[in-house]
C-alpha cells in the first residue's frame, strides 16, 4: 500500500504552482489531475516525451508494405491478364497501399496511446471524482509520515482548499 498526499485546488494556476514547489522540495512522484488539459504543465514538471509518433510512423510503414504486398501478391497468385498490361500495376495498387497505410497508422496510434498512457487500468488508483468536474488536484507519493507533513504544508501554502491522505494498491 502506497500513501499519497492529495491537494485539491479551485484554480489550475495554484495547482501548477503547488506542483512546482513540491518538485523543488525534492518530491518526484507527482501527478496533476484536472477536468481539462492544463496549459504550462511541461514548464513545471518537465518536458513529456511520447512514443505515440513512433507507433504512428511504424504503423503507417507496416500498413503501406502490407497493402502493396496484399494487392501485388494476390495479383500474382491469381493471374488476371488484361490487354497485355502488367500484372503488378502500380497506380491502382498505390491506392490500396495508401488505404492500408492509413488503416494501420490509425490502429498503431491507438495502441501507442494505450501503452504510453497506461490505459486501460481498472485497479484502484489515486483519484477524486471532483477532478472530473471543477477541481484541480496534485497528488504526491509519500514514503512516511514526515514526508506527508512536508507535502501537506507545501500544498496548503500554495492555496489548496483541502489536503487528503489517500492510499493506492501496490
Amino acid at each position: 500500500m502506497k500513501n499519497f498526499a492529495l491537494g485539491l485546488f479551485g484554480e489550475p494556476s495554484s495547482a501548477l504552482a503547488a506542483a512546482g514547489k513540491l518538485k523543488g522540495a525534492g518530491f518526484d512522484s507527482l501527478e496533476l489531475m484536472s477536468p481539462i488539459p492544463i496549459a504550462g504543465v511541461e514548464e513545471v514538471l518537465g518536458e513529456k516525451k511520447s512514443v505515440i509518433k513512433r507507433f504512428t510512423l511504424f504503423g503507417g510503414l507496416f500498413g503501406a508494405l502490407f497493402g502493396f504486398t496484399l494487392a501485388a501478391g494476390t495479383a500474382v497468385l491469381y493471374l488476371h491478364p488484361v490487354g497485355g498490361r502488367p500484372i503488378i500495376t502500380i497506380p491502382p495498387f498505390l491506392i490500396i497501399t495508401y488505404e492500408a497505410l492509413i488503416f494501420f497508422g490509425i490502429l498503431f496510434t491507438v495502441a501507442g496511446f494505450f501503452i504510453s498512457s497506461r490505459l486501460p487500468a481498472f485497479r484502484d488508483r489515486v483519484y477524486v471524482p471532483e477532478t472530473g468536474v471543477d477541481k484541480f488536484a496534485v497528488s504526491v507519493a509519500c514514503d512516511n509520515e514526515e514526508h506527508f507533513k512536508r507535502a501537506e504544508a507545501i500544498l496548503h501554502e500554495a492555496g489548496a482548499e483541502q489536503v487528503r491522505e489517500v492510499g493506492e494498491e501496490d
Binding site: P37, I38, I52, T109
Partner: peptide, 28 residues
C-alpha cells in the same frame, strides 16, 4: 472510460494521439 483519471500524462497522450488521428483521417 478505461480507468481515465485526467492526469497530466493522460491529457498529454490523448492530445498527441488525437492530433495524429486527425492528421491521418483528413486525407482518408
Amino acid at each position: 472510460s478505461l480507468g481515465w483519471r485526467g492526469t497530466d500524462r493522460e491529457w498529454h497522450r490523448l492530445h498527441w494521439a488525437y492530433t495524429f488521428l486527425a492528421v491521418l483521417i483528413i486525407p482518408l
